[in-house]
């Protein structure tokens, strides 16, 4: 049993929450750009949060279900239709055999996730199903999906949509916006910015440029200056690290970032706000707000607790369904 890719879309890859433990070999995490969206849809389906999903960009794929299953969409909204009937994000749907899922319009955001109940059949590389496009390994044959690819899944599931009228509460969905303010921690070299540049970093807006991809988002905005020129030897960087390039512009490192870098680290976007950034596209704007580590950790703990409650609620719901 499988899904068949009728049209591949511009960039469709198989990803999970990322590959850990091999950064010291230059193997970065990869994985989905919007982790919270994926944790939500997997939880809704009763899956492990780390179950592999398809990450799509617009124009997105056209997908045929070759066997019945249950799926959910999350992240961006590309006006999905299952056999011409509209499909909402964050809700469970039954896909019958030979039904076709299409994405008709880019309504909001830039990265959409398709997860199916009990997951796709994947071959893990170094413990993860994520695609490393650079090394050409992991995920689906180490590459983006192409026309006529078949992604296998593990279980046929016959259900009707009446059996689970079930949606994730809006309060749990990230507060997406085309112009978000994302919270960050100051980076090791923040204090090397001159006084005016420090203020500009938090007071000005920055625009996502066309040279932005899964590796990093290059931003365009006021030029920022260091108080004196600084050469750094390479060291590790992180998903969400904001670096200052030599010409005074910023780049935010995203899921496919290199493991190490030598540009000044101005700040680090906190994980609770990374999804807001991950959904931006060309010409969208972003503003930065610095917060303390203590506050950032508390935000993360609250998110983790909310996700835990959601997982429990979805599991409980499944149990009660089983006894109906």
């Amino acid at each position: 049993m499988s899904i068949l890719i009728d049209k591949p879309g511009i960039l469709t890859t198989l990803q999970d929450l990322g590959r850990n433990g091999f950064r010291r070999f230059g193997v970065n995490q990869n994985g989905v750009m919007d982790k919270i969206a994926v944790r939500l849809v997997n939880s809704l389906l009763g899956n492990d949060e780390n179950e592999a999903v398809l990450e799509m960009h617009f124009p997105a794929a056209e997908i045929q279900f070759e066997a019945p299953t249950v799926f959910a969409l999350g992240g961006a909204d590309f006006a999905a239709e299952l056999n011409q009937a509209p499909v909402e994000n964050w809700r469970l749907y039954a896909a019958e055999k030979n039904s076709v899922l299409k994405f008709t319009n880019k309504t909001f955001g830039n990265r959409l996730y398709l997860a199916i109940k009990r997951g796709f059949k994947t071959e893990k590389w170094l413990g993860s199903a994520s695609t490393n496009l650079k090394a050409g390994i992991g995920g689906f044959k180490g590459r983006r999906l192409q026309k006529n690819d078949r992604v296998e899944f593990n279980h046929e599931l016959r259900m009707t949509n009446d059996e689970f009228n079930f949606k994730i509460s809006n309060s749990l969905v990230p507060f997406y916006s085309k112009f978000p303010t994302v919270r960050c921690l100051a980076g090791a070299e923040f204090d090397l910015l001159d006084g005016q540049s420090k203020e500009k970093f938090v007071n000005e807006n920055f625009t996502v440029t066309q040279s932005s991809d899964r590796m990093g988002f290059r931003l365009q905005g006021v030029t920022l200056y260091l108080s004196k020129p600084t050469e750094l030897v390479s060291s590790a960087v992180n998903f969400g690290t904001i670096q200052l390039l030599p010409a005074g512009q910023l780049i935010v490192l995203m899921a496919d970032h290199q493991t190490s870098g030598g540009y000044p680290r101005i700040a680090h976007v906190i994980p609770t706000d990374l999804p807001l950034l991950a959904q931006l596209g060309t010409n969208d704007k972003v503003a930065f707000h610095l917060i303390s580590i203590e506050k950032a950790e508390n935000l993360l703990m609250k998110l983790e607790n909310d996700l835990k409650l959601l997982r429990l609620a979805c599991k409980f719901r499944q149990l009660t369904n089983a006894f109906d």
Binding site: R24, F25, G26, V27, N132, K134, A135, S234, A236, Q258, T259, S260
Partner: peptide, 10 residues
């Protein structure tokens, strides 16, 4: 160190 690409040794 190893960095930049998978297995790139400095």
């Amino acid at each position: 160190m190893i960095g930049f690409l998978p297995a790139f040794a400095y």
